[in-house]
Amino acid sequence: MDSKSFIAAMQPEVMMAKPGKKIKLKDFDPGFTGDFKKKEAREYLEAGIEELARYQDILYAQNTYALLLIFQAMDAAGKDSTIKHVMSGVNPQGCQVFSFKPPSAEELDHDYLWKSFRCLPERGNIGIFNRSYYEEVLVVRVHPHLLDRQQLPPSTRKGNIWKQRFEEINNFEKYLVNNGIVVMKFFLNVSKAEQKRRFLERINRPEKNWKFALSDVEDRARWDDYQTAYEDVFTNTGTDWAPWHIIPADNKWFTRLAVAHFIHQKLKSLNLTYPEVEPNHLERLQESKQRLESEPED
């Protein structure tokens, strides 16, 4: 399958949250798999992983851009396994994964973007946020009592704090992009029925018990609230410089292929090249080559 046919089969446009448009999750099918079969998708993923490794090598060598991958999802949508599979071929030296947990006492003594600043990737590197600062307009919005722990000025609580944070996040991401940090945002869109199946699997299989927390069921009871919060996030923070990709997550084999495809396309669009070597350095390389070749054999 050539590149055109692959993109036609992938249908990437159905997974894009168009900036400036009001987003409704009912318009995105969690079970969508394009025109791919499972075995075929796995073969393409393997090839895609090799391409990602090649692009990462150039990204690292060029040392101009950094890539920030943000993953958000409901519980059991497959964030961990997607990151594991898609990034399995990259060089660990140029890639870091950060999983953001509930804020610590130290983090609560700072603004809500502080810990994200500390984890931003260096030029030439890929940074992965498994959950992110978006929790501040998702979990905190669904559970507003969490705002009480953030020691905010009273004036902040009087207005529309969510609208304010959307604006701050957009400005933050624009700042990153302006400074060479490419921001890619993925929402793994799992259905409520598939989440239930995966929860039961975690309970029924002893080796997966550790993955299940009682709070998972409590959050599931707020499913509709989370869906509404996510829709508001996509509508207000989907921008031309950092758009949202809403990835079908009911079939993990397609989720991984779709994420790999979008990352590959973004890296390709940067026109990455290995650094050019100065002429005098090329001359020295040839001198070094001659010296090495003239050494007597051991």
Rank of each mutant, 00 (worst) to 15 (best):
A47Q: 15
D75F: 09
G78C: 03
P206I: 05
A213C: 06
L200P: 05
S3I: 12
G34H: 10
Y112D: 02
K4N: 14
E135C: 12
W241Y: 05
R220M: 06
H245T: 06
F254C: 04
P296N: 13
H245N: 06
K196W: 07
P12Q: 10
F262M: 00
S99I: 09
L108Q: 13
P296C: 08
S88M: 11
K266D: 08
V14C: 14
V259R: 00
R149P: 04
Y44R: 12
K84H: 12
K101T: 15
T64L: 15
K18R: 10
R284V: 07
R198D: 03
T273Q: 13
I169T: 09
Q290L: 09
K196L: 11
N179I: 08
R131H: 04
D27Q: 11
Y226A: 11
K252C: 03
D232N: 07
A213P: 00
T64R: 15
K268D: 15
I23S: 00
P92T: 06
S99N: 10
L146I: 15
H85W: 08
D111L: 08
K266Q: 15
V259Q: 01
S88W: 12
R198E: 03
M16G: 06
Q164D: 12
Y133K: 07
N271A: 11
V14W: 12
G34C: 10
S88H: 11
W241L: 01
Q56G: 09
L285A: 08
P296E: 14
C95H: 05
F262D: 00
P19E: 01
G48I: 09
A213F: 07
M87D: 07
E135Q: 13
R141S: 03
